[in-house]
Structures are given as structure tokens and as C-alpha cells.
Nucleic acid binder design. Structure first.
Lengths: 195, 195, 195, 195
DNA sequence: TATGAATGAGCTTTCATTCAT
DNA sequence: CATGAATGAAAGCTCATTCAT
């Protein structure tokens, strides 16, 4: 009854969901299509997930969770707040550029999902917000960043800019490299929040 | 046969759609519910709109079109690029803070709509991008803004930040005033793009 | 309130109905389309007809009524039963070949109409059956036709054959002349029912 | 995804469709009514058929296909063309008299269906035309039938007469036996087409 | 564990008809 | 007489979820 949260089928289903949603779009990603792509029966999905929403939420949770861990690990290895910010932007772009399907799914398709899924996604993204906020606060403490800006406002800028940049990149069919945007964006950020 | 694109019923239906979508959410905004709210028969909607999608696209077009016109008019009355940017942010916030329901609909709910509607919405938002780009280019020409940043990148920052700020405000139930965010955001922007 | 059964608009509406049904088919012949073709307002149709069914029934009645009168008149001018039968087949074909649109409407499209319309059409066709039956009975009395066949059965043959011939002709886009079929059909009939 | 074309539910749905259409008429034969009659859920119909049209086309195809096979088998067992024609008329009447509901559906109700369904039905009936044409040609070759008539014209007579006879029988509530009509009709046919 | 056939609730759109002008 | 804007009932189809095997 309770859904298993591991196993190779668990992962197969999540990966199938990413592929199907990326290829057909959120509104054409039926459970049966995901099951077929994962080479399992429709009913099998309900052995590993509570319902379709749970597949989508788990998908986001797995992918975003791994990303956030990577970011946290990377930031802890970098002492300077400026370099930390650069690392965050770089990793964000690298992660999505390395998996176009995932980029499409998390950036475009999953945003059309129903209220419950978006609520859960919001809770997960919240952790990423915390990472950014922490980075900013630490930078202010260390004297790298100015004290005259509101952390939350700066986080809106950082996340909003990154998000808009990625969305725009996808809308343009990922036909240029995101990595080239790291430096320009960073320059704007640092000028904006530096002393 | 052809849908009439004006008349008091036309406006009544669009306004009803805003209210219904704001209150019940995109997925619970049935045509019959919108019709009831507009105090017209279901079929009457199809005298003024081609189909349900057309209602949503028209809604966005009317509201966003009016907003963009307002912004363009306001910007032309302000000489300094710095003040123009401030005016843009201020108007954006003022417009949405002045109509919470519209804010919810355009910022949250309509983003869950089907591909065709989102495609049309994208075309309309494109015009707003152009306004921002124009503002930035003119500021660079006049020497107010630095020359070492990419206009598109700066636009990602400006639009992305504004968008994220508004989304966050709505997610927090609009319980503080957006206007208080104008100055802090602007300071980040101007430090970022000034010479 | 009571529908006027004459007037130039009455005829204009019936003729418009024939053209619209012939061009667009029964299922795409909406009242508003017929009104537009007749250059009257939708509501005007209801000044001349009780409802849409009444338009269709009146259409059939007018056209078939005129045809039956023509046939009766023609038959009375011909003494020999054999020649009468020939005249009936000839007139039937001539009438429909002379008005392809009417042929399509009465032969194909109106047969898809609802039960009430078809019931009324049946009553009108009944008169044509009577003309055929009378022709046959008179031919038997005069000794032209054999006595060993049932009149009703022969009428099934005559009407069924004519009907099938016309339907087939329309299905083949009226691309040959019906008149060429008069002699062959008549030969079969006469051999079948002659002494 | 692809509709299953066999199984006991497949047959149950087709049989339910015959009963519902016969009882309520084509225009009152909703999918949900057919489903209820077949004791399946509405959605189950779409596991076995592409859409409602497909139910109707399949219905006609199954019934008419079986009938045509029966006729072909029977004719091949009869050497004389005259007896073959008799067998064809007899089987036609026997088949419909043995299933009044099917007679009503194929003879009356399905003729009101939409253009696509009627087009498909036409293709199926075409095979029956071929059987008749073949019978006639073979009779001419064997010297049983005259050579001075057109096969197509004779087929119009044979099919048209049979069709008209059955329609008339149904319109009179099937209150007499069709079998009694076999001999009279056949006499007319044979006199008409014999040497 | 795994299957996949079966379920059934839910919604957009059309169009004949009316009636205030 | 004539108009045409407004009405509102009615139905085919999809797809997440279940459960007997």
C-alpha cells in the first residue's frame, strides 16, 4: 500500500516521466504513456508512487534535491562570497545545460501542473532560496557585499535573473551555450551588491 | 459567426474571467462559471470569443496591452534613463498592486494554461521585453548606463527580478506593499548597470 | 404567429434551403446559414415557418407536390399504359436532372433528417405511390399489363429501381445523363409486368 | 490505445448498439445509453472502438459482412442463375426478418448518420452490389438471362426493389412476412431479365 | 510484485428558437 | 413585418486510478 521510494523501477519511472514530459509536454504526459516509456504496467506506477502528482513531485524532489546538495557542497569548498556566487550561477547553468530534457521539464512544463504539485515544488525551491540567502548573508558578514541591500530583494534578483535566463534559453531551443552567460550576469550581480 | 471584439458584454466576460480564475484557479474556471459570473448565457461567450482559449488570450492582451501603453506613455514623459527605469518598476508594481485578482491571474494562474494560450501570451510579453530593451539601449546611448553589459542580459535581470518579486508577493498573500520594493530593487539595478 | 405560407420571402427561404443543403449537406445547414443565403434575418424565417423542420417539410412538399401534379397531368394526356409508365420514368429523371441541387437534397440529404421530417416526407411520397399504383391498376384493367402480379410489388420495383438509379447517379457526381437510362429501365419493367 | 476489434465486450457493445438504435432511434442513441445497455462503462467503449462512428461502422460491417459471406456461400452451392437470384432474395429477406432490430437499424436509422459513417457504409454495400453484378453476368454467360439489358441497370432494379420492399415492410411495423414476397418479386425479375 | 482491463466523472461548444426593438 | 443578439440544453471523449488475477 505504502509507496516504495526506491528500487530501479522507481528511478525508471521518474526518468521515463522526464523523457515523456519533455517530449510531449505536460498536458500530453499521461500515466499510461509514462508507464510504457518506463516499460512497466500502468498499475506498477502505483506501487512506487501514491498517485500521478506524487510522480511529478518526486521527480522534482530527486532532481532538485541532488542539485541543491551539489551546490551546497561546491559552495563550502569556495571561501570567497564572490566566487561562491559565481559557482552557484555556473552550477545552475551547467546542471540544466547538461540535461536539456530536465531543463524543459522543470523550467517550463512542470509550471503548468496543478496547485498541489506547484505547492510542493515551491517547498523544495524554498531550500534553494535558503542557500542563496545564506550565501548573501555570509557575504555581507564577511564584508564582501554591501550592507545597504535587503537580502530577500537581492535573492529575487539572483534567482529571478537566472530563472529568466534559462527560460529564455529554452524558448530559443537551447541553441546557444548557457555558460557564456555566467560572466555577464555575474558582473551585473556583483556591481549591484558589492560595496 | 465572427466574434465581436468589443461591447460591454465583451468586457463583462473578460472581467468575469479574471474574477473566476482568481477565485477558483485556472483549472476550476469553467466556461459556465465565467458565464454565470458575467451574468450572460454560456453561448453568449461564443458570440464575443472564438473559444475558451480566445477568452484567456484576449484577457491577457487587453490587460497587458493597456499596461504596456501606459508604460510607454509614462517613459516618454521622463527624460532620464534612471528615472525611466524607476518609472517602469513603479508602474509594474502599481498596476498589479492595484488589482490583486489580475495579479494572481497573470502571474500565477494563466501560466498553467495550455500550450496555445501560453504561446500567444509569450507574443504579447515580447512587446514588454522590447520596451525594456529600448529603455536600456537609450540609456547606454545617452551615457547613463555602462557599455560593458549585454542588453539582453540586463533585461533578463530586470524582468526576472520584477517577476520573481511579484510572484513572491502573491505567494505571501499580497500582505505587504509592493511599492516598498521599488527603491531597493532600483538601487540594485542601477548599481549593476550604471557606469 | 401563424406562419405565412406564401410571399416572395417564403419562396426565397425554401430556395435558399435547397442551395445551402446541397452545398453544405444536411448536418451543416443551420438556420442562420439558410437565412443568410435567403438574405433575411434568422428571425424572419420564423415568420414564414413554424420551425426548421417546417422549412424542410415545406421544401419537400412544394417541390414534390409540383412534380406529382406535373406527372398526373402528363399521364392523363397519354392513353397507353406502357407510354404512361415511360412518361413517368422520363419525367422523374428529367425533373431531377434539371435541378441537381434539388436532386441532392431530396435524394440524399433530407433522408438524414429527424423522424418527424421523415414521417412527413413519407406522407408526401405516399401520393406518388398512389400515382404509380393507379397507373398499374389501370394498365391491368386495360389488358396492357399482366394480371398475375401484385400491384404493390410492382410499385416497389418501379419506385425502388428509379430511386436506386437516381441515387447511384448522384453518388457518381451526376456525370452522365439520366435520360439514357429511361429506355433500358423501361424495357425491364415492361418485360416484367407485361402479359 | 489501439482499439481491440474482438472479444465478448466488442460483440456486446455492437449488439447493445443495435438494440438501443432500434428502440430509441439514431438521434437518441447516445454513447452512454449504449454503454449502459451493454453493461459496460462509457469509457470501455473507447477501448474497443475509436469513437462513436467506429461503433456504427463496425456494426454495419460485422452484420453486412456476415450476410454477404452467407450469400456468396449459398450462391456457390446453387448452379442455376435463376435459382441463385431466388436464393439471394430469399436470404436477404430471411436475414432481416430474422432480426427485426437489425432491419430497423440498417434499413432506416443508420441512413440518418453523418457523412463519414454513410461513406463507410457505402463502401461495404458496394461489395453486395458486386455479388449481384457477378450473379447477373454469370447468368448472361450461361445463357439464362437475356443479353439485351445492362447489368448495372438490372442491379438497380434488383437492389432497389428489394430495398424498397424491406423499407415498406418496416414502415408497416413488420406485420406481415417478407418471405411471401420472394416469389412475386422473383417473377417480375425473371420476366424482366430472362430471354 | 506486477499486470492491464475496466471504470465513470467532468467540460466545451453548437444551434434552434425567442423577443425586445 | 423585420431584425439579430441572446439563450441554454445536451453529449462525446479522456484519463487517473483500481483490483482481480
Amino acid at each position: 500500500m505504502a509507496a516504495k521510494r526506491t528500487g530501479e523501477k522507481y528511478e525508471a519511472i521518474i526518468d521515463a516521466a522526464v523523457r515523456v514530459i519533455a517530449q510531449f509536454g505536460y498536458h500530453q504526459a499521461q500515466v499510461s504513456k509514462i508507464a510504457r516509456e518506463a516499460k512497466v504496467a500502468d498499475g506498477t506506477i502505483y506501487l512506487y508512487f501514491k498517485n500521478k502528482d506524487d510522480v511529478l513531485i518526486s521527480l522534482f524532489n530527486e532532481k532538485m534535491g541532488a542539485f541543491i546538495s551539489d551546490v551546497e557542497r561546491a559552495l563550502s569548498a569556495v571561501p570567497s562570497p564572490e566566487d561562491q556566487l559565481k559557482e552557484l550561477v555556473r552550477l545552475h547553468f551547467e546542471y540544466l545545460e547538461g540535461d536539456h530534457e530536465l531543463a524543459i521539464v522543470t523550467q517550463i512544463e512542470l509550471r503548468q501542473s496543478n496547485p498541489e504539485v506547484r505547492r510542493q515544488i515551491g517547498l523544495i525551491v524554498k531550500k534553494y532560496y535558503d542557500v542563496i540567502d545564506q550565501l548573501l548573508r555570509s557575504g555581507i558578514e564577511k564584508g564582501s557585499f554591501a550592507e545597504d541591500f535587503d537580502v530577500r530583494t537581492a535573492r529575487y534578483m539572483i534567482f529571478g535573473t537566472i530563472d529568466e535566463t534559462v527560460t529564455s534559453w529554452i524558448m530559443n531551443d537551447c541553441k546557444y551555450s548557457l555558460m557564456g552567460q555566467v560572466e555577464p550576469i555575474l558582473r551585473l550581480f556583483l556591481k549591484g551588491i558589492s560595496r
